[in-house]
Structures are given as C-alpha cells and as structure tokens.
Amino acid sequence: MAAAAAVLNGCDQNESGSWQASTATRVCMDGAGHRVEDDRCNQSVGHGVGFYYVGAGRTVPGVGSPVSGGSATPEAGVAYTDAAHSFSVARGGFGGTGGGEGGHGGGGE
C-alpha cells in the first residue's frame, strides 16, 4: 500500500522516502512512533497502531520512519486524506517559453 502511494504521489521522491503533501494527510503508526503500512490501521486501530495526522504542506514520513511534524490528534475542521489518495503537487513546469511573464504572449499567430 505504501509503495503504491509513493508511486502515485510523484516521480521526484524515493519509493520509501518522505514527501511533502499538498493536502492534509493521515498515516498509520505503531506504538513506537514509526510509520507503518496504512492497511494495518484499516484492520486494527487500537491494537498497537493508530493514526497520525500531518497538515497540508508538511512532510509525510516514509514507512519505517519516525513520525514527526504532525499529531496523533486530528485538527478540528480539517479533512484528512489517507496517504494512498493524498498527493504532492509540483508547479512551474509550463509557461516558461517566450520570455515568461511580461514577455511574448502564448496567443497570437
């Protein structure tokens, strides 16, 4: 599950590494404070595993890494996405030709 989530979430990060989420994300952690596969929380929350909540723009730890930068308690009013459906968004990959802003427009032939 975690490997699939890593592939879904961008080609510029390690398969098992951490990445920066664009949306508030929740992951699964064990009693020792390390991130584990999300499946384990789906099966048995409370039996040694629980959710860990990371805010938008924060780093989502990779599986096996200690969790930090978030909280075991979700913030009120925030909708958290499971890591498998969360994502990080890169921008700036279009629009640079033609001198950029203030230069030649994209329209006009």
């Binding site: 949306t23 994502f87 968004v89």
Partner: peptide
C-alpha cells in the same frame, strides 16, 4: 489559470486549489 500554476501530482494535472 496561468500556465505556470498548472500542477502535476505524479498522475494528473491539478489547479491552484488542487
């Protein structure tokens, strides 16, 4: 949307509100 603001999340393109 400005072309420079078009986002890519590894699977699909997203706008400024994702």
């Amino acid at each position: 949307i400005l072309m420079t603001d078009v986002g890519w999340d590894g699977r699909i393109f997203r706008d400024l509100e994702n």
